[in-house]
Write a protein that binds this DNA or RNA. Structure first.
Lengths: 212, 212, 212, 212
DNA sequence: GATGAATGAGGGTTCATTCAT
DNA sequence: CATGAATGAACCCTCATTCAT
């Protein structure tokens, strides 16, 4: 048989790469459409049009609408966590404030690069949409949980080194994420679509608050 | 004739009161349904069932789905702003921190009392939903704008009295609201449906941050 | 008992007259609304509003929408036939053309006076509406049939006196009515709402056609 | 690539032809349903059932109910006018009566072939239905206007050649159309569904009237 | 008898999903 | 595999009719 011949293998590779490329294009189109039109309003036809393919093709790549959304979240989730983990696996610099600033910079950079995904996260957070999207429902809290975990990790470090007060510490990750998200929404509302998240100011605020 | 007789007048009063009661019941049911099932997912039939009336009745009281949502937002909006204005119209205590704490307590109290509305606000914030709901679209940013305005007012006071740093002050209202909202969502996620917002801790965090 | 006392009788008379007056007002309102808004589009609420009463009152006077429409048709039908019969019961003048002109004048006069009813007749004629309105369905062809009968009567007279050609005579009533109706619609289309049907010209055309 | 290969082109041709066929089937079904059940009573589900497709398919081919009706009217309108214009563009035979007879024969033939459409025209004429159907509203008077125009054209010829009396000539088109329509309705009422319009008799009547 | 709010069956429309080509 | 027309369940909304006051 020539099923394993080099040329066949090469052809399969090519095919598999083409397939991957189409999947990625669909996910990108889905990200844009979900963000722009809303998680509930975006239609499969719109996504297909944005991806430059026919609706049927979406279903060749993803079981259903829910699976597409879940795949999109999963794709970005892993990329974000990778960025964070890459940093968290390094030894601490010794200065908590620098460490935090670096981590939040990485997150902010990712969210700036994937603004659309950041908006989708916001829509998912309410958890109300997940009832309709069971697969995403399993994926989105997981993603939030993992984000939370990373932030808890560094917060615990901060508490241990007495850089942070321990009293309300369990909610610091929530507050930090909430501030990033509300800043993104505010920038959108002000029409500053291309402006970056003011990460340094947010970290400063997180550390020292608003008082003089 | 007897069109103005006491009994007719009484009957009209009764009717009008019954009508108000039904409207209020519908708005309450809508609040619950929109919050629980999601702004897009909640159906008119669900809302009617929750209110214990038939669908047609919803349309006797509100022009369409959009108008019902707008009426709901408007109802709560005015109640919230009233609570805030009642405080803001008083002379300052002189101590900024006390003033802020009091104001946020009022807001938090309102949001605790109307948890479901707080969740709806969150869903409205993305602005993506409003595209579909023109009437709400005109109402919801107004509400956010007015909330913002109140907070800006007190923030400016704080800056003027040098209780607050001026550098990032334009975003303090956004951050404060973002923290309240993310805390609500977190409590929901943890299943602590009936727990109150930890207003004191949030204000403390707002003022002094997380650092020791 | 005083059930038959004069005053009671008088009171009952009064009441019955009031009832009649309300019924007539409703029928008038129905005529206007059906004509203006269309047989299918006119709603019971619109009719009630036009009559200055509540919807419920319509149902106190007429079993349902269909019965109201049927009563309206019946009311005008009997009035029209009365006008025609009054003439037809007289002995012929001896001149067919004069007789026809007089009859058509009476019909045209009635239709001018009840333009709205004339329009309703037009809508009923298609017979498509009657499927939905069983009572009217029984009433409207009857009305058309009776109109037809009167016209057949005079046409037969004309044929017998050799004033009319017999060849196509069975369709002369249809053509005559069709011309009256199309003239009404044309006047409406031209915005000449208040113009009278050009009865003389129509009768002339009926008798001698368009040729020189 | 093979986007322009013969097989793809052939497939697209096939698809496009199938699509046309479905559209035509839907228009035919709509014609039958609108005529039989009435312009207001016919439901989209009935039309879909008559066409042997699902409701959704109607909306794949026509924006909404109104657009379907308008497309139907437009389709028949252009076919009718084509038949008339084909004749009107020829030089006159010199004999007005022959010309008129020929033209009305063509119209009558078309209306016989499209009896259902003839009935729909009748329903549209009242203009009351069109208020609800904006697209049809723009299309239906246009169609009536164009029909009128053609008839005015030939009537003017007749007046110029002194074949017709000029006195009431502006209403001749209206009367002619009204007679055709009332004859169709009469045939329907008599259950003579398949009988043809008696065009010769109508033209004779138009020219010479009913008198001996 | 008049009132008008409540009712709910039924119609128009959308859109995720399927499947023949 | 890609395609896109067909499908039909489910949604929003209307309006004739009822009935408690």
């Amino acid at each position: 048989m020539n099923a394993n011949s080099p040329s066949v293998a090469k052809a399969q590779n090519l095919r598999s790469r083409l397939r991957e490329a189409t999947s990625a294009a669909i996910i990108d189109a889905a990200e844009g459409t979900f963000a722009e039109r809303g998680l509930n309003t975006a239609t499969m036809n719109e996504i297909a049009a944005a991806a430059g393919v026919a609706v049927g093709t979406l279903y060749n790549h993803f079981k259903d609408r829910d699976a597409l959304l879940a795949a999109l979240v999963e794709e970005r989730r892993s990329a974000l966590l990778e960025v964070m983990d890459e940093f968290l696996d390094q030894p601490s610099s010794g200065d908590f404030a620098s460490d935090l600033k670096e981590l939040v910079h990485r997150m902010g950079g990712f969210f700036d690069q994937h603004r659309r995904f950041h908006q989708i996260l916001h829509q998912l957070e309410s958890g109300l949409n997940t009832a309709q999207y069971p697969e995403t429902a399993a994926c989105s809290p997981k993603m939030r949980g993992e984000l939370h975990l990373r932030l808890e990790k560094i917060v615990k470090r901060g508490v241990k080194t007495k850089a942070l007060r321990p009293e309300f510490a369990e909610y610091y990750p929530t507050l930090l994420l909430g501030m990033l998200r509300s800043m993104r929404m505010r920038l959108l509302e002000l029409g500053k679509l291309d402006e970056r998240l003011p990460v340094d100011e947010i970290v400063r605020f997180f550390m020292h608050g608003a008082a003089v």
